[in-house]
Design a protein around this nucleic acid. Structure first.
Lengths: 285, 285
DNA sequence: AGATAAGTTGTAATTAAATTACAGAGACGC
DNA sequence: GCGTCTCTGTAATTTAATTACAACTTATCT
């Protein structure tokens, strides 16, 4: 984890003076990396050893080492920390914040995701007789997107956002079928039912959901994404982007597993769209 | 210019000893940033002042300052570049690559996006009598998602992924209505038609599409996202994530514009879902 | 409420690191 | 071959960072 995020995360565990240091650093990170420990201590109105202790608390070897880490954090422009949108943010501010929070969320997801489970999920998907994607509410569009991707692979794939259709589909599933249930919270009752029904009918159930949730318990395989969500907005945002990226990963794993010849097929699918589109040349001149 | 590049570029203008220093640094940059000037001098088999002079020659204030710059160069090097998935990538490799490419794409989008247009789009949306989201193929799920978001705002919103429905809806649009057309390439003929029809019927048409595309030409307002796409995969991936984030931004702008009271409403919508879900406490123990 | 222990912070001493000043060695022109 | 200019290293100096210790604050238990 990057030092800046670390500071923000552990701001509660700091003592009063350490917090002063944290505030000064967060307010002028650029200045900090070019300051001596004495200068920073003065700015924060604390003693030099306090600054040093602060650095050590963040698992760095000391002040110079801390500066190095800070410099690296700062190197990525403004680093991707989860910044919350505020009441009086202008368009510039909220646009930047949402982009950055989303990137921060993806970064977090990348670090938490379990590669082994991904690999097993790809295994299962490549061998599936039929793939079904189920989601409700915001997750329905993720399911939709997954369908669109896997449909290109010329495998039997369905997607329902209607619980009755989902239920019927789940009941009709059989061994070799794969059901992918998508839910951020994993607490949507209807979807848990669907997962249970599918399992009872010998389908393999992959859950894209929170670890240890009721839905997770019903699944054969759980792909969990620990994503920090800005709950102030009351809308699923980052979580759903992470889900989509996960779908991309599964789809990519799928195509790689199927080999070169298969990917030529993908090109054909893409080319088939040409008729429905204006030609690039027609308007570019 | 970053220090590492600078070293490589000016390797000719170095003296014999300075060159020794450069070689050692280029060979183990990671070690360098954690070494003292004494240690580095020993590694390069030169004296400490030589190392110091070397640092000064690269326009840094001294050795510690040089390390800071070097640390930043190293941090900038790897992260979030658009790395293409290769034939023989394992799950670990392609997972990392897709996450990183997506983040790189978002970073690019963030820099290219036009804040003014976003602000105007938010303006238009807040004043809309009715909002329609139209997309086809992969963009259909983005439209779907947008509908899900704006529906929470208790404004009349529709979303169709069926061209006939889209067409009928466009023909029935009137002044004060906003139609949002989503297409990565902006070359989907049907969608261009829809945009034209909507405009003819006095609706405001917002395009989430490529700049200067046929679709863009039919729109009142164009939100373009310049996103580098990995065309080897023949699937829209990063582009669609960027579109979603843009939707998040519009939705956020919308809620901010509507004020605090309105956001309490959002909470109500979210709370209304509680009945359909398992309680958190029920399974967490 | 008072006493004790745990944790926090600052002062002063110490140590480590980096820089400067200076002198010797090597290269080059005359 | 001599003088000059540049390069490089040694030693001294300065600066910065860390440690050790003492004073103080805060919480806890009787």
């Amino acid at each position: 984890m990057n030092v800046l995020e670390k500071i923000i995360n552990s701001v509660n565990s700091f003592s009063k003076s350490e917090r002063k240091v944290a505030d000064v650093i967060l307010a002028n990170p650029q200045t900090t990396i070019h300051s001596s420990i004495a200068a920073l201590a003065k700015m924060a109105d604390v003693s030099e050893p306090t600054v040093n202790r602060f650095c050590r608390r963040l698992d760095t070897k000391g002040f110079p080492d801390f500066k190095l880490h800070l410099a690296q954090s700062l190197a990525n422009g403004t680093p991707y920390v989860n910044r919350h949108v505020e009441e009086d943010d202008g368009p510039e501010a909220y646009t930047a914040k949402i982009f950055e929070s989303t990137m921060a969320a993806l970064d977090a997801a990348r670090q938490n995701v379990d590669i082994l489970t991904i690999n097993r999920a790809v295994d299962v998907l490549t061998q599936a007789k039929k793939i079904s994607f189920f989601g409700l509410g915001a997750s329905a569009s993720v399911a939709h997107d997954a369908q669109n991707k896997f449909f290109r692979f010329n495998v039997p794939v369905v997607c329902f956002d209607d619980i009755v259709m989902q239920r019927m589909s789940a009941i009709n599933s059989a061994e070799g079928d794969v059901v992918v249930c998508i839910s951020h919270t994993g607490r949507t009752k209807n979807l848990c039912d669907i997962a249970a029904i599918a399992r009872e009918n010998d389908a393999t159930v992959i859950g894209i959901t929170a670890y240890d949730s009721p839905l997770a318990k019903e699944c054969t395989l759980v792909l969990s994404l620990d994503v920090p969500e800005d709950t102030d907005m009351y809308m699923p945002m980052a979580s759903r982007v992470a889900q989509l990226v996960l779908i991309d990963i599964l789809a990519t794993g799928f195509t790689l597993r199927r080999g070169t010849k298969f990917r030529e097929n993908l090109k054909k699918v893409k080319d088939s769209l040409r008729g429905s589109r204006f030609d690039k040349k027609d308007f570019q001149n």
